[in-house]
Design a protein around this nucleic acid. Structure first.
Lengths: 147, 147
DNA sequence: TCATTTTTGAAATTGAATTTCAATTTCATT
DNA sequence: AATGAAATTGAAATTCAATTTCAAAAATGA
């Protein structure tokens, strides 16, 4: 369970472990995929209606700072959070109709990116690559709707 | 000159050609790179102090709709606009220290992306790829500052 | 328990994006 | 050149997510 790791990190930083933080972390870890703050908030509220939006916001920032969450900004502008799954970087395939997000990884592309950076004498810290389109399900739906 | 093409498109859409729109387009086309709305606005104001922020905003949206401008959202959250240079898609290398943006293109990566999409049965409309890091100039500066 | 420090949460603030609306401008038609 | 319908302008207002403020509440260590 990650909760203990979390508490340990919290103490090390001179911060305090609270009911709210534990509840938010727990909810967040059980939520799959890339969730917006309001999505996370509405889930947290179900578990404890007393927890405020601000606290969820601050806790997600804290988790990001501690490396337990990763922030993502896609083209729609809303910030999304995802539990950090250790060591695996990945990119995204996003359906513009239904919002589905598929993760993928491609070592060849990563290598080519390193080459490009080197050629321009850049030192890369991170990157993002997103492919926007339509998933098969939505394409089928549209085809039917058009009849 | 693109101005005439612009007027033609304007009329075709049932819209009207105005002093403001011409001035904004003109300023925008002479501005290189990826500019934020406020950067474009402050440049437009130099040419004509009477032109309002809202008009610049709406004109950039219009240009985007007409395909003369391309909207970009990088990780800093601010929307940037770039004149559409026909036919050439490109990706970006961004310096996190000085904000410099370098454009690049890599056909091999593009091909690999198409392969990934196909494997997931996605139909891709567009994509974005951004490499964030530090350019050579800033790396040198920092090295000196550390002494 | 007490004292200190952090956290909480409602409300306020920020800042960019977008909308509103009355006044103005464009342009096709006289 | 004058007219009028339709579009445009620009200042101000609004929206909306992100972020900050601050007094009250909770957590930790002595």
């Amino acid at each position: 369970m990650k909760l203990n790791q979390f508490k340990a990190r919290i103490y090390k930083e001179g911060l305090k472990s609270t009911r709210q933080r534990e509840e938010i972390l727990n909810t967040f870890l059980n939520l799959s995929g890339h969730k917006s703050l309001s999505q996370i908030f509405s889930q947290v509220v179900k578990a404890d209606p007393k927890i405020g939006y601000t606290t969820v916001y601050r806790t997600l920032r804290l988790l990001t700072r501690l490396g337990l969450a990763t922030q993502r900004k896609f083209a729609d502008g809303e910030t999304r959070y995802e539990p950090t799954s250790e060591g695996t970087h990945h990119d995204h395939l996003i359906c513009l109709d239904c919002g589905k997000i598929i993760e993928f990884e491609d070592q060849t592309i990563e290598a080519l990116q390193r080459g490009i950076a080197q050629r321009h004498r850049f030192k890369i810290f991170h990157h993002r690559m997103e492919l926007y389109g339509q998933c098969e399900t939505c394409r089928r739906k549209k085809r039917i709707a058009h009849r």
